[in-house]
Design a protein around this nucleic acid. Structure first.
Length: 477
DNA sequence: CAGCAGGGGGCGA
DNA sequence: CGCCCCCTGCTGG
């Protein structure tokens, strides 16, 4: 609206920056709204990107109003998926010559533009627009086959799904999950959460498209109890995993979703560590690429953290925690173990999306990632600082309280009983529990023969049974 | 079925 | 550490 001179402001390296941010968002699993599942691995990504780069996904999302669908790529290999995602996000992917055919084939299946579909040739685009979206799903042979190679079809046809499909235990390979999941066997309080779900399976192009509608229920990850109604094909097992993840995500603030996603924490969840930690695959080369970029662009260090590392930092050190908490949520994606959320109903409120913990814009993360540490409390007991939970509205002046609280979110239970499988997130709980093994019942009711090892219990007993709060002090035995 | 005991989780301090 | 609350299993009416 300027009547004066018209200024043209141009962002010099907008494309590069944009791509970078996009990749960062993906890496941090921020704002992801769709999860690709392949060979037991889960890739939280963005519909926007997928649909932009792939007709197939575009069409799919058009027909799936689902908030956070989980798409099972049944006949692709994870490295192919990784490569394609790399391609879509970064616009580049390094692939071994030997793998090229496979990759192209996979791209064809997914109709990835530029690989399988001509990259925006005007005419083609026109044709596509005129044709109903479904055509792309229904017919692989339609428009895109600039690089089609049917001769390669055997290359990707191999049924890989579910092979190492990280059955229940897999995601727990993360140290953050291990305990949290394991202990549930002795937890009685975890109610089985049933996810309201609907599966839309499509056997298009040998892909199985699994979509789950908004999951509402609490998820009990107890593998033993999980959704008994379902058949247990390898694929289904994998789906159960994704199911849990999704429902959790749905309950978390958007930002947290991603974190949680990280809960799946691909690097750690995949026992082979291929996705995150290895660089042997074409897809993972992108990770290296991105990391390099980060350094060059001197982004906030925290952004370059792999999630598990960040979690360790956050939980191990007060400063880490504080930085993360106060850093505009940039570390919010670092929590693993969301998937280990217990089904305990009491957890539910914690998962309610909270406006106060809204994800911050990317620039915000960058901006505050360092500065946020300014008020870091070095000591657990520092009451001057309020520590906020990234998952809910909880806050505490005590870092330790927050830690325990966050443990409840992540499911992490670092304190384990040497005598049984009991694990807890609180040392005091462990101590209390240990008393049950000792068999000592120091607290004796002065009105009856009742005795217990818990003070609160004896008091409760005294009050309810005898209408008094008097009780014998702890016995010396 | 109600009441109690046992055990556990979360939280304040 | 203490407190409160919850859930589950047991038991007696």
């Amino acid at each position: 609206m300027g009547d004066g001179g018209l200024l043209s402001l141009s962002w010099n390296n907008h494309k590069a920056t944009f791509c970078h941010i996009l990749s960062t968002l993906r890496e941090k699993e921020r704002y992801t709204d769709v999860t690709l599942a392949c060979e037991g691995k889960f890739y939280p990504v963005h519909k926007l990107v997928l649909s932009t780069c792939s007709e197939y996904f575009e069409s799919m999302f058009e027909h799936t109003p689902c908030k956070h669908p989980i798409i099972v790529l049944k006949d692709l290999k994870s490295d192919e998926v990784e490569s394609l995602l790399s391609y879509m996000y970064a616009g580049v992917v390094n692939v071994a010559q030997n793998d090229l055919a496979r990759l192209i084939k996979a791209a064809e299946l997914l109709k990835v533009k530029g690989l399988a579909v001509p990259d925006e040739p005007p005419q083609e685009v026109e044709n596509r627009k005129n044709s109903p979206p479904r055509s792309s799903r229904d017919d692989r042979s339609s428009p895109h086959p600039k690089r089609r190679r049917r001769d390669d079809s055997d290359g990707v046809a191999g049924e890989q799904h579910g092979t190492n499909a990280s059955p229940p235990a897999s995601p727990r390979t993360s140290p953050y999950h291990a305990a949290s999941e394991f202990h549930q066997d002795n937890s009685r309080t975890h109610n089985e959460g049933h996810v309201s779900e609907h599966r839309t399976e499509k056997s298009i192009d040998r892909l199985e498209h699994d979509v789950r509608s908004d999951a509402k229920s609490t998820g009990d990850l107890n593998p033993d109890q999980h959704n008994p109604a379902k058949p247990c094909s390898p694929l289904q097992v994998m789906l159960e995993e994704t199911l849990v993840k999704e429902e959790i995500m749905d309950h978390l603030p958007e930002d947290k979703d991603s974190l949680m996603g990280s809960g799946m924490d691909y690097g750690s969840m995949t026992s082979d560590g291929r996705l995150e930690n290895s660089s042997s695959d074409g897809g993972t080369q992108e990770h290296q690429l991105l990391s390099a970029k980060y350094e060059q662009q001197s982004l906030a260090p925290s952004q370059t953290h792999h999630l598990p590392e960040a979690v360790v930092e956050a939980l191990a050190g007060p400063s880490g925690m504080q930085g993360w908490l106060g850093g505009g949520g940039d570390m919010s994606g670092t929590f693993s173990g969301v998937d280990s959320y217990g089904g305990d109903s009491r957890h539910q409120d914690l998962r309610q999306p909270l406006p106060t913990q809204q994800p911050q814009a990317h620039q915000m993360m960058v901006k505050s990632s360092r500065g946020g540490d300014a008020r870091v409390s070095k000591y657990h007991g520092n009451r001057k600082t309020t520590h906020y939970c990234p998952y809910c509205s909880y806050s505490s002046h005590f870092v330790n309280n927050l830690k325990k609280h966050v443990y409840a979110h992540t499911g992490e239970k670092p304190f384990s009983c040497p005598h049984c499988a009991y694990c807890t997130n609180s040392p005091s709980h462990l101590k209390r529990h240990m008393n049950t093994h000792r068999g000592e019942k120091q607290f004796i009711c002065s009105h009856c023969s009742y005795r217990t090892h818990r003070k609160d219990v004896i008091e409760s007993h005294m009050w309810t049974q005898h209408g008094t709060q008097e009780s014998l002090p702890a016995s010396s035995e």
